[in-house]
Amino acid sequence: MSESYVKEDSSHTIGVEFGSRIVNVGGKAIKLQIWDTAGQERVRSVTRSYYRGAAGALLVYDTTSRESFNTLSNWLNDTRTLASPHIIIILVGNKKDLEEAREVTFLEASNFAQENDLIFLETSAKTGENVEESFLKCAKTILAKIETGEIDPETIGSGIQFSDQAIRNNIQNRQKQNSSCAGCRP
């Protein structure tokens, strides 16, 4: 599983990259359209345009880089202002395997997540730990919000599409992975 996330080449994202993934939530196959936007500050204004219409976002920082954690609020602000107001944001601290180089504690990040109403996870793209979970969590939360009526998939720009199959259980989520540090790479 981890290979699917750890790209062998170590090239950085130019602007935005695209991927998709089907996850299974409660018997429903959900297709996630994933837009991986570059995390460098210099391309921030370029990638902004892709935020609109996303149903969920993964905000990724590097647990071994204080700097990447510090810029989170900027990215969060962008996401909140540009995407739909009901966007589900998952805060992801990557590189949890590099415990000795850690600069941001779990507690600090989870406090930040709590203050900003985010779901928080720490992952390791290298070992694959929690990577699938973070996407799953996002999909689950979106589904739950649809069921409670907090999100109306009919609203334009919700980023959610029901598929045209007779059994209406296939939901696509347009989703963005916002990697404020080298993304899901180790």
Partner: peptide, 25 residues
């Protein structure tokens, strides 16, 4: 044809950098 679109996306985003205010590195 997906790779073509992926290339197009990356390359146009690369182009856009010249429109930015700050100094180009």
């Amino acid at each position: 044809k997906l790779p073509y679109l992926e290339f197009w996306l990356s390359a146009t985003n690369f182009q856009k950098q010249k429109n930015q205010h700050h100094e180009l590195d």
